[in-house]
Design a protein around this nucleic acid. Structure first.
Length: 852
DNA sequence: GCTACTCGGGG
DNA sequence: GTGTACGAGTAGC
């Protein structure tokens, strides 16, 4: 029978482990395979002392020869393989030896690597059906299993969960000990019976897609029954890992109901992920696993997706931006009253949340990428949502198995401290030639620089040569030696080569495919690219098993020497000046204004400066280019496509949208950058800023563009410092004690004019509009507008004083003095002092004259 | 410019 | 579960 591997775990049968594989068949049925012929083991070096210890402990062992992971060696090392019955006894046992290998690899992964099993890949197994209470799906006693070459995926069953709770006290955080669950909203794909969606209600009620119950306990029992009955592969929802699931588990516990919602009798595993430092027992990141099923929390996935950047990650924003849907409009404070009154409205709301959460996952095909990551790296689908480290280590372990190599342990605490002190010298970031460049800037970069370096110089822990040697080596700029690739190919270069080859194949296939297939292939090629690019980071990551300081340092050193060489070669041979470069890229200023000419030059430079496998790619043309500092620039990018030249403004490191900046700042920044790049007119940009400053002073700036937003995160009395949004919240509580702003609300505010602390002058926008309260021009100019704008303008040599200078000066200042009095103005930098400084010296160093 | 601290999502 | 783990943005120095 063929299965696609969904999940693996084990249980103890007597004192021996039984592995359990959950898989999907070709016709989308779920089955379980049991295998009891695999035992845990690990290695220690063969020494007299170790042998004696093993005899004393009466352990099962065998003598073997294995290659170690770090350091090149022509001969394997003598080791002892210790075999046990219970995986849980390994941690204690390994402590008996001062060094061991492979002894902290999760048992299910030990099994998977040895049997050549990878997450979400297809396998053919032989076995006979057996009856057992150990799994809730048809089960087989497995005799053998082997990989088959098969594309495509079985169809998975999705169940989406969203709960509503009855919070009894809004002055604290929600608490699963005190606050009951009043609704469990579910949505399904494919349908459950004929339900596409279903809301369970914790009191008697009848409606179309809802089922009422006597109380919370009965509702929870109904929920348990449905999950067992529907038997989902994927349990999903928005923020379910940190909210819905732990809350449900806690409530189940309260009523003494079994939390075994998986495909086996095994209990759901849940723990709060350790958060650094103190924990104010607030639910943070949880890690919940359900045996045989996949828990997929779209919130956790989306907030870490670098290709999707949103300013907020609440469900409302996410569904609006990603699938164009609207969320229901019930505020959480309204829930208690709806529960007492309009229950149907609350049901509709709960229903909608579960429906759009599922739609989000399905329509955006959020799982695709992770299925591909599993197939490539070998991790279980459930483990593919985490970081790159597990992915690389799993990939490496499969390669180790083929090479008869053994794996060092994860670093101990002491080791971590030691590693943390070893600094790795980073990449070269060239000093930018700051300012606005009005002729074409060509951008070229090395195609996957670090993976290429690893490949070209055979950089790998197992090819690193210690001490003197007569073997042929590559010597890195740091002096580290790597045995030449034609003598021995290291694990890392081999893996990278395979990844690169696979990616090329996938990309070719992609060109021939369409629609859904194409999308899956794109996910795949992208996952491969990221994985290949992570190898360098892995080597320098202190928690990595194969952390090798020397390697991380060598890779960056090769990179630095490479970009340095390239810079010289290009400047010597082409009419171009290097005005910036970062890690693997060079920004070349030319005196060209014609796109076609620029393109030709870029292409010749690319040909000339590429060196074999190190390809120096012509990336793009900026018709004009503004650079403020390292890693902060904007360019007017031109790309030639079938339809001719396409253009767009590209920004890197210049933040234009931030929640604590009002709209006016964002808009002004965008305008200034646009004018500079597209019109090359710094004077026009300066004038625009002056006009806006004037508008602020005149009170002409529209209120809605001055709104700043900050959220209330705890009880407003428990804040130590004074912050504008909290002070406003307190004010609003005084005005309307019956409906005070609560935890979780986001406060919009405007800073108004006055003599108090800034935070005391925060006011609600509606209040400001209603009573026509004057805004604090000074605040908006000095705290909001000027800091970011000044960074842009000063790069082209325009100083703050110029914004207040020129013909308008008298007018501008008089406007100010008329409205806010009295003030002192610095004649040099233009800073306005509410009171003259005692020293009579301005921050800029100039003496200020009293001019009020 | 650096380090220390806070907060996110959910109701 | 052969466990031990965030990450960006901001305030404060």
């Amino acid at each position: 029978m063929l299965i696609q591997l969904l999940d693996v775990d084990y249980f103890l049968n007597g004192n021996k482990p039984v592995l359990r594989i959950f898989g999907k068949t070709e016709n989308n049925k779920t089955i379980c395979c049991l295998y009891d012929k695999f035992l845990p083991y690990f290695f220690v070096r063969k020494t007299e002392e170790n042998l004696r210890k093993i005899e004393e402990l009466n352990l099962n062992y065998a003598l073997e020869k294995k290659f170690l992971a770090i350091g090149y060696s022509e001969e394997p090392t003598n080791v002892i393989k210790i075999v046990l019955n219970d995986p849980k006894s390994v941690p204690n046992l390994r402590e008996m030896f001062n060094e061991s290998f492979d002894s902290d690899i999760l048992f299910k992964y030990r099994f998977m690597v040895d049997m050549d099993l990878k997450g979400m890949c297809w396998y053919e197994f032989e076995g006979s059906p057996i009856k057992t209470h150990l799994s809730k799906v048809p089960t087989f006693d497995m005799k053998s299993i082997k990989p088959v070459d098969k594309n495509g995926n079985a169809e998975l069953k999705f169940m989406c969960i969203d709960i509503e709770c009855l919070q009894t006290d809004f002055s604290r955080q929600i608490d699963s000990k005190k606050d009951s669950i009043i609704m469990i909203s579910l949505s399904f794909f494919p349908n459950y019976k004929n339900y596409e969606k279903l809301v369970l209600v914790a009191k008697p009620f009848s409606g179309k897609n809802s089922i009422g119950h006597v109380d919370e306990k009965e509702m929870l029992e109904a929920f348990l029954k449905i999950i067992e009955d529907y038997d989902p592969d994927v349990v999903t929802g928005y923020n379910i890992m940190s909210f819905d699931l732990p809350h449900i588990l806690d409530r189940l516990k309260k009523y003494d109901l079994s939390p075994a919602i998986g495909r086996s009798d095994k209990i759901v595993f849940s723990r709060p992920a350790q958060i650094t430092g103190k924990s104010d027992n607030k639910l943070q990141v949880q890690d919940i696993t359900i045996p045989g099923r996949i828990v997929f929390d779209s919130y956790q996935i989306l907030k870490r997706d670098v290709n999707i950047r949103l300013h907020r990650y609440d469900l409302g924003t996410v569904v609006r931006e990603l699938i164009g849907e609207k969320k229901g409009d019930v505020k959480f404070q309204e829930i208690p009253s709806l529960w007492k009154g309009d229950v149907q409205k609350l049901i509709d709301y709960a229903e909608r949340d579960a429906v759009i959460s599922l739609k989000l996952v399905l329509e955006r095909r959020l799982l695709d990428k992770f299925i591909e990551i599993s197939k490539i790296s070998g991790v279980l689908l459930q483990d593919s949502f985490g970081g790159q480290t597990v992915r690389i280590e799993t990939l490496v372990m499969h390669e180790f198995k083929r090479r008869n190599m053994i794996m060092p342990l994860k670093p101990s605490k002491q080791m971590l401290d030691k590693r943390a002190e070893e600094k790795i010298k980073g990449a070269t970031v060239l000093d930018p030639k700051k300012g606005l460049h009005k002729t074409c800037t060509l951008v070229l970069d090395f195609q996957s620089l670090y993976p290429s370096i690893i490949k070209v110089y055979n950089v790998s822990p197992d090819s690193l040569v210690f001490g003197e040697t007569s073997v042929k080596c590559n010597t890195s700029p740091t002096g580290a030696k790597f045995v030449s690739g034609d003598i021995y190919n290291g694990v890392f270069p081999t893996i990278i080569r395979e990844l690169v080859d696979t990616r090329q194949r996938v990309k070719k296939l992609m060109k021939l495919s369409e629609g859904e297939d194409k999308r899956v292939l794109d996910a795949k090629q992208h996952a491969i690219k990221i994985l290949a690019n992570s190898m360098y980071g892995y080597c320098g990551y202190i928690r990595a098993r194969l952390y090798t300081h020397e390697i991380a340092n060598s890779i960056t050193a090769y990179g630095r020497s490479n970009i340095e060489k390239t810079k010289n070669v290009v400047e010597k041979n082409f009419p171009a000046e290097v005005i910036y470069g970062d890690t693997d890229s060079l920004f070349l200023k030319t005196d060209i204004t014609d796109m076609e000419v620029a393109k030709d030059l870029g292409e010749s430079i690319s040909k000339f400066a590429s060196q074999g496998e190190l390809v120096f790619e012509f990336e793009k043309i900026y018709k004009s280019f503004l650079i403020l500092a390292k890693k902060r620039y904007a360019g007017w990018k031109f790309v030639k496509s079938d339809k001719g030249w396409e253009e767009k403004i590209e920004m890197r490191g210049i933040e234009t949208v931030r929640r604590d900046w009002c709209k006016l700042v964002t808009e002004t920044m965008n305008s200034v950058i646009n004018i500079m790049l597209k019109e090359g007119d710094t004077k026009k940009a300066t004038d625009l800023v002056k006009t806006i400053l004037q508008d602020i002073l005149d009170g002409k700036a529209p209120i809605e563009k001055l709104i700043i937003i900050k959220g209330i995160t705890k009880s407003i009395d428990s804040y130590d410092g004074t912050m504008p949004h909290i002070e406003l919240a307190k004010k609003m509580r005084n005005r309307n004690p019956r409906d005070p702003p609560k935890v979780g609300e986001r406060m919009e505010y405007i800073i108004t004019r006055g003599k108090d602390l800034i935070s005391k002058r925060a006011e609600h926008p509606e209040y400001v509009a209603k009573y026509n309260i004057p805004i604090d021009s000074e605040y908006y100019i000095y705290n909001q507008l000027l800091p970011p704008i000044e960074r842009i303008l000063s790069s082209v040599g325009i100083e703050r004083s110029e914004l207040f200078g020129g013909g308008k000066q008298a007018n501008l200042m008089s406007m100010f003095t008329n409205k806010v009095s009295p003030v002192t103005i610095c004649s040099s930098c233009g800073k306005i002092h509410r009171r003259p400084p005692l020293s009579m010296v301005c921050d800029c160093g100039t003496s200020v004259a009293l001019r009020t």
